[in-house]
């Protein structure tokens, strides 16, 4: 039998809406607090380029021809124009490479602040402590550029 949906009758639709809303309940206060607090991360410095997440082995299909590295490692790739930042995340920590290489430093931030910072070597490698759960972003400062990755949960 074909019943048109959404129901044309206002009372029926109101009842169905009520059931749908009750099923999920109100937004927990904790969610509101975290959402409001996110505003503190507004980048006042507009010169920081945003490196978008281009690939995440956790949920994207492996690009053809790419050999998968160490078994349990998760790999992510961020990009902002010509700048590419690739990281491999394991329980032991983060190892990454910044391209083009040019020394400088990389810092790792959570929503509560910087949790680790490390130098970038002459070929662009760096390593950082294992990230805590929750969204993390990496910020790279080199002579030539400053980029910040988009926020993403690394573990």
């Amino acid at each position: 039998m074909v019943e048109p949906w959404p129901p044309a009758d206002d009372d029926v639709l109101t009842a169905e809406l009520g059931a749908a809303l009750r099923e999920v309940g109100p937004v927990p206060e904790e969610f509101l607090t975290a959402a409001r607090a996110a505003f503190a991360w507004r980048d006042v410095a507009a010169e920081v380029a945003l490196a978008e997440l281009m690939f995440d082995s956790a949920c994207d299909a492996e690009p053809a021809g790419l050999t998968r590295s160490a078994g349990s490692a998760r790999t992510l790739s961020f990009r902002s124009g010509a700048v590419v930042l690739e990281v491999e995340v394991t329980e032991a920590g983060i190892v990454g490479q910044l391209f083009p290489p040019g020394g400088g430093r990389v810092s790792a931030q959570t929503a509560t602040g910087t949790y680790d910072e490390a130098p970038v070597d002459e070929v662009g490698f760096f390593s950082l402590d294992a990230p805590p759960p929750g969204p993390v972003r990496l910020r790279a400062h080199t002579e030539g550029y400053v980029v910040a990755t988009t926020w993403v949960a690394l573990r």
Binding site: A38, D43, A46, P135, T150
Partner: peptide, 20 residues
């Protein structure tokens, strides 16, 4: 519950960086 909170926080941080 922890994953749900993390998604919520991630989405709002993304919106902050994306606002402009």
């Amino acid at each position: 519950g922890a994953d749900a909170s993390d998604v919520n926080q991630t989405v709002w941080l993304r919106l902050v960086e994306h606002l402009g």
